[in-house]
Amino acid sequence: MEADMATFFTADTHFGHAGILHGLRPGFASIEEHDELLIEAWNATVRPNDTVYHLGDFSLSKDAAYLERTFRRLNGRRKVLVVGNHDKRNRHLPWAEQHEGIHEISIEHRHLILCHYPMRSWPRAFRGSLHLYGHTHGLLPGTTQSQDVGVDVWSYRPVSLDEILERMASSDTQPEERVLTR
């Protein structure tokens, strides 16, 4: 059964946050249309038994009932939050885990540093550790070891580690700390 479960990463969904439509995500008629597209894209990617690491800014809505309904509509047996700057109201949701700041995990023999914010340097970078982040809505390009996993970068959906690794492999930009210490 373990083989049937996959792990995905995402960030910056901003469910219920109408302000996101005015700058970063124009083209949606309403926040309801935006949210429905994100839910559809999430559920087309994530299966019911999968794990999703959400690297912050799940929502910026004051409507707790709306957030609860939205959360429950999203596929995934385990949803883990790495808290972002807009997650004050999202902590009451039934996350499997919640983490402040940096969260370190290993998946498929890869050491990952998860944080809402991009970092110029991170633990174990010199040993091949990868850094996944959100917050920048695709404005800060990734490197051979770091990548924005936010929905703005990945067609409004969560992304697998294989897809992230493929994007990193296509980059010719080394992490700044590694370049400067050569």
Rank of each mutant, 00 (worst) to 15 (best):
M1Q: 14
E2I: 09
A6H: 07
F9P: 04
A11P: 04
I20P: 01
L21Y: 03
L24A: 15
F28G: 05
F28T: 00
S30M: 00
E33N: 09
E36S: 06
I39F: 06
E40M: 03
A41V: 03
W42G: 02
W42Y: 08
A44I: 03
N49H: 08
N49S: 07
D50I: 12
D50R: 11
T51I: 00
V52F: 00
V52A: 04
Y53V: 02
L55D: 01
L55P: 01
G56C: 01
S59G: 05
S59I: 05
L60C: 07
L60M: 11
A64K: 14
A65C: 11
Y66S: 09
T70Q: 06
F71E: 04
R72K: 13
N75L: 01
N75S: 01
G76S: 10
R77Y: 03
R77W: 05
K79L: 15
V83T: 06
V83Y: 05
N85C: 09
H86W: 01
D87R: 07
R91N: 01
P94R: 06
Q98D: 02
Q98R: 11
E104R: 15
E104Y: 11
I107A: 13
E108K: 04
E108I: 01
I113C: 13
L114F: 01
C115Q: 03
M119L: 12
M119Y: 09
S121M: 13
S121P: 03
P123M: 04
S129V: 14
L132I: 11
Y133F: 14
T136K: 04
G138R: 01
P141L: 06
G142W: 13
T144C: 13
T144L: 11
T144R: 15
Q145G: 12
G150Y: 08
D152F: 05
D152N: 06
S160R: 12
L161M: 07
E163A: 15
E166K: 09
E166R: 10
R167T: 04
M168D: 06
M168G: 11
S171A: 07
S171W: 05
D172F: 10
T173Q: 12
Q174K: 14
E176A: 15
E177N: 14
E177C: 15
R178K: 14
V179Q: 11
R182K: 10
R182Y: 06
